[in-house]
Design a protein around this nucleic acid. Structure first.
Lengths: 146, 146
DNA sequence: GCTTGATCTCAAGTTAACTTGAGGTTGCAT
DNA sequence: ATGCAACCTCAAGTTAACTTGAGATCAAGC
């Protein structure tokens, strides 16, 4: 097994830290493909370790399995992924990360403004007033911090 | 209603952008408390608009409703939250945001290293080798990019 | 050849966060 | 005083991402 080209589901599970049941689940969802032994046991490619790692990272970025599958479909199952395959998928993940960071930074900025101005307690803050006085005349803005 | 101290569930829903059913759900989960009219309809405080906004922001930060409830329990329902209440909860959210950003930046860095080195295709990358040769002798590291 | 841990399939359960639907009541403008 | 949108409750359904359990088979060391 150790030096094999093919690996068992348990080995893949140990190497990636995900449960065996989760791997079967990923296969069912099309994120992974397995060959079968004569006795019907799954055999994965060693490169599937990376594939699964990819799923884990992408999940941390907030992607759902369906989206991840779309990303991964760029990586052909059968052959060893090329440098280009890898670059493409990595760059698209990089963009996702950048977008997430930007959103968080925006939120942080809004929050800082809000902390600074004494929102909620003094009735001086523009955000607060949007809730209250401004809100009192018509539909008004929906979300306090966007 | 518009200048009332108390607001209906529909108004709260419109002002926050969340569905009426979601508000009832939040109440059930203890995130919100409502008074009732003689006819059993809910009446919220105007300040609950902010409370709900808070839930929305905290959710964007990846907190679950249970955790949010814990945070929110610092904000007493009955009285107008003070500057201190607000500052405390905002600061703890700020920390959560900072942590998230840091994690994303780490991931981005790892990913960049990986893109730069031509992982997966050339057998030169340390990350790649951890999967493969290193992985071939023993348990080895579990996650490719941590 | 036998034992034992690893696998297999398939169905059902789980948690989070809501939504939908049925059947009935309220509140407010005219 | 009446109509109708907005409310109410309670039960069940939904989606995502898995896990758990039952009952059976496989693979590999001794």
């Amino acid at each position: 097994m150790i030096q094999d080209r093919f690996i068992s589901i348990g080995y893949l599970a140990r190497r990636t830290g995900v449960a065996v049941s989760a791997i079967r689940f990923y296969e069912e969802k099309g994120l992974l493909t397995a060959l079968r032994t004569s006795g019907n046991q799954r055999r994965f490619l060693r490169s599937d370790i990376r594939r699964v790692s990819f799923v884990l990272i992408a999940q941390k970025l907030g992607l759902g399995l369906a989206e991840i599958e779309r990303e991964l479909s760029a990586l052909p199952q059968g052959r060893t992924p090329t440098l280009e395959d890898w670059e493409n998928i990595s760059l698209s993940m990089r963009e996702a990360i950048d977008a997430k960071i930007a959103l968080l930074e925006l939120t942080r900025r809004k929050l800082d403004e809000c902390i600074g101005c004494g929102c909620l307690s003094l009735g001086k803050c523009r955000l607060y007033n949007r809730d209250d006085e401004a809100g009192a005349q018509g539909p008004g803005p929906r979300f306090v911090l966007k």
